[in-house]
């Protein structure tokens, strides 16, 4: 963990605190508040150019920049890992422009910006999770016209998505969506959970932490307030089932976490390990301590 420096003294020359100018922050803050008031509804916002390319989470970065203060402790994960280039770049960016403390520990963080995972450790009321979203519109592949998807959301007409999922069942016997599996928020709005594995969807349901979503290229913000019902779309005869690889983690032995399959050598050797590196590391320490006692 880095220390909290005075934000104005820690390399922010030429930048406002947290990079964005105050008018942009106000505009994003107003969008966030309306997003919280209308759970699951996408709010357009005037996204700004950021000093990182699209695909690097510029939507999530703008949401984080609009909420972040000097007392926050920021964790950034990419596919569950704190040590990828993307996660490190975003952490460095906020250290530079806001002098904010960072951590790899889920428990120590007050704000968690994430790409493609929800941490294994249950989040608390005093935490906010910010998702990076490439495509906020769950109907985009079924209805490319923006005006038409807005109309469908207004009518809560989600028949297109039900048909799409039911076609999977008819063809394959199950719903083939392993990522970005659509959810209903508070029984009203169909929402993209971002490309997290469907395994993570149940963590969104009645989560004590506030969940915010930022899409930079598509210029949309949406939110799920704490303790809000989030249901993965399914059918009575084909209930939603979160799927994980049927293995234990090769490093910590967890049989509950979401696993990544990694190659171990050139000869095709492979193993399954936790995708959440903080969770896995903590468990490895705990297992080693137990063995030593």
């Amino acid at each position: 963990m880095t220390g909290i420096d005075d934000p104005r003294a820690s390399g922010t020359e030429g930048y406002n605190f947290a990079y964005l100018d105050e008018a942009t922050k106000r505009m994003i803050r107003r969008a966030i508040l309306k997003a919280v008031a209308i759970p699951g509804h996408q709010i357009p916002f005037g996204a700004r150019e950021m000093p990182l390319p699209y695909g690097w989470g510029t939507g999530g970065i703008q949401v984080t920049a609009a909420i972040l203060g000097p007392a926050d402790v920021l964790k950034v994960i990419d596919q569950g890992a704190d040590d990828t280039t993307n996660a490190i770049s975003i952490r460095r960016f906020f250290t530079r422009v806001a002098g904010v403390a960072t951590t790899e520990s889920t428990a120590e963080a007050s704000i968690i910006q994430t790409r493609h995972r929800i941490p294994e450790k249950a989040l608390r009321e005093d935490q906010v999770i910010v998702y990076q979203v490439p495509q906020p519109e769950p109907l985009s592949k079924l209805e490319p016209r923006r005006a038409e998807t807005e109309r469908l959301h207004a009518l809560a007409d989600y028949g297109l998505m039900h048909v799409r999922l039911y076609e999977d069942i008819a063809r394959l016997g199950h719903i083939a969506k392993a990522y970005d599996y659509p959810v209903m928020v508070n029984g009203r709005y169909l929402m993209s959970p971002s490309p997290i594995p469907a395994f993570d969807n149940p963590k969104m349901d009645r989560m004590p932490a506030l969940q915010l979503f930022g899409a930079g290229r598509e210029k949309r913000i949406y939110a799920i307030p704490p303790y809000t019902p989030v249901r993965s779309l399914d059918f009575e005869d084909h209930p939603f089932r979160p799927i994980r690889a049927p293995h234990a983690c090769a490093l910590c032995g967890s049989t509950e976490s979401y696993l990544d399959e990694v190659l171990t050598d050139d000869a095709g050797g492979r193993m399954f390990v936790c995708s959440d590196t903080d969770y896995c590391g903590e468990r490895q320490v705990a297992v080693a301590q137990e063995a030593a006692e």
Partner: peptide, 19 residues
């Protein structure tokens, strides 16, 4: 402090609107 006081107030309003 227009920047940091606005941030602190926004978080208070966000907390209030979220809960």
């Amino acid at each position: 402090d227009p920047v940091l006081d606005a941030q602190a107030c926004f978080r208070a309003v966000l907390e209030a609107m979220s809960r």
